[in-house]
């Protein structure tokens, strides 16, 4: 079992709104590990679009993403890549 935390910076223009949060939750849900996201002391479930949106994370926000489970590493890589690609949203590149 591995528990890993990584700090990731949101790069897309409008931050963690509906679509990015949805894509984040969808990506996290592909893995068995537990995923938690922390911003400014708020910790929420990483597999919930609603919870992620409540973080009010805008562009430039640093998220502490913690994955706990056998596939934690893969999961975090996947999420980091998604954030790095600015969620593939053409208008927010």
């Amino acid at each position: 079992m591995a528990k890993i935390t990584r700090e990731l910076t949101l790069l897309n223009k409008y931050g963690m709104h509906v679509r990015p949060a949805g894509l984040f939750a969808k990506t996290a849900s592909k893995y068995d590990c537990d995923v938690e996201v922390e911003k400014d002391g708020n910790v929420v479930a990483g597999k919930s679009i609603m919870a992620l949106m409540t973080l009010e994370a805008s562009c430039g926000a640093v998220l502490k993403v913690t994955a706990d489970g056998d596939d934690a590493e893969e999961c975090l890589d996947d999420i980091a890549a998604l954030i790095g690609r600015k969620f593939d949203i053409p208008d927010e590149q």
Binding site: R19, S48, A51
Partner: peptide
Amino acid sequence: AKVFEGHLMILEDPIL
């Protein structure tokens, strides 16, 4: 369509 894909996820959100 992307807007409503978001709605679908809100509808199915585990915490909600």
